[in-house]
């Protein structure tokens, strides 16, 4: 079955069956990644370029590993250090790289919409690895796979997303994905970080964490950026932890089998209690990292299948 999209720019464009298609294929890669020999060669001969205009360790490593396990030639470009400093525009950079005939372009950029803009200018498949506060589709997909494996389904779940929703592309992509899969979403955080407009996206908004966590199946914590802790959005780290940090006491309000997620990197003692994060009975944070590689392998294989003259079986 072919994949219905040329690029993976966001969850917004995907239909539920597209999401299921990626997750189903990713399952097979979870198994492969657990074997000693982890190679599948569906991307052999193809070139993957990772362009990160914003620093990233985890996502970039995950994409790099995903490409290598599928046999692609992977190149990483640290864009903060290069031509941008010399005044080259995003479009010119895109055209320059495009002339080198990459097949897959993985892009992260600090501005919302920048990856869409770039995708309009190149011939290859583009994967959005996070643009501004807009979308981070592979993160939402890996979260979905993690939830599906833990809960056996993606529909009729109550999912709480807690923390800095306003500045989070992870939150937006997750809201869109879980909404499409017919789960209910609660957003929890102070009004400075969870603006009321999110209610228009079909979410329930809570500024009381205890109320918001009552009876949920999944608790998804978000990272609080250091630069937001200076009194601009919240008064202090310790007051934030007191009201919105996840600890065993607050988690007790959720369903007894509720799972705890975090996209990483974590601030232990700011948004999540360290012991809780390490509790293998509740926390699926390490699973999320594992699912990340599998989901990215699946997404890249499906997009490569749509490339002209591709040898990847469609």
């Amino acid at each position: 079955m072919t994949f219905a999209h040329r690029h993976l720019l966001g969850i917004e464009q995907l239909k539920p069956q597209d999401i299921t298609q990626i997750l189903d294929l990713a399952e097979s890669y979870v198994d492969l990644n657990r074997q000693a020999a982890k190679h599948a060669d569906v991307l052999a001969g193809l070139t993957q370029i990772n362009m990160f205009f914003e620093a990233s360790t985890r996502t970039q490593a995950s994409f790099e590993l995903a490409g290598k396990r599928l046999g692609a030639d992977v190149m990483n470009m640290a864009m903060q250090a290069s031509s941008i400093k010399k005044g080259e525009t995003l479009i010119d950079t895109a055209l320059t790289l495009n002339a080198m005939h990459p097949d897959l372009l993985v892009v992260r950029h600090p501005h919302s919409g920048a990856v869409d803009l770039l995708a309009q200018k190149v011939n290859c498949a583009v994967l959005n690895a996070g643009d501004g506060r807009h979308e981070h589709p592979t993160q939402a997909l890996l979260d979905a796979l993690t939830i599906r494996r833990a809960k056996g389904r993606l529909h009729r779940l109550n999912v709480a997303i807690c923390g800095d929703i306003a500045h989070s592309r992870v939150a937006r992509s997750n809201i869109l994905l879980l909404g499409k899969m017919e789960s209910r979403i609660r957003l929890i955080g102070p009004p400075t970080l969870v603006p009321a407009q999110f209610a228009d996206m079909g979410c329930e908004v809570y500024d009381d964490m205890r109320e918001g966590l009552a009876g949920v199946d999944v608790v998804m914590m978000l990272r609080l950026q250091k630069e937001r802790m200076d009194g601009g959005f919240i008064p202090s780290e310790r007051e934030y932890y007191h009201r919105y940090g996840l600890d065993a006491e607050k988690l007790a309000l959720a369903k007894p089998d509720a799972i705890v997620m975090h996209p990483g990197p974590m601030n232990r003692g700011v948004e999540i209690d360290g012991t809780l994060a390490d509790d293998i009975n509740r926390s699926v944070i390490q699973d999320q990292v594992e699912m990340g590689v599998a989901v990215r392998m699946a997404a890249m294989e499906l997009l490569a299948g749509n490339l002209a003259g591709s040898r990847v079986p469609a």
């Binding site: 917004e12 919302s112 919409g113 643009d131 501004g132 506060r133 807009h134 979308e135 592309r169 937006r172 603006p195 407009q197 999110f198 228009d200 996206m201």
Partner: peptide, 12 residues
């Protein structure tokens, strides 16, 4: 302008 559209697009 703040509202659903700006939220969806992730624009300040």
């Amino acid at each position: 302008t703040s509202g659903k559209f700006a939220t969806l697009r992730g624009l300040p």
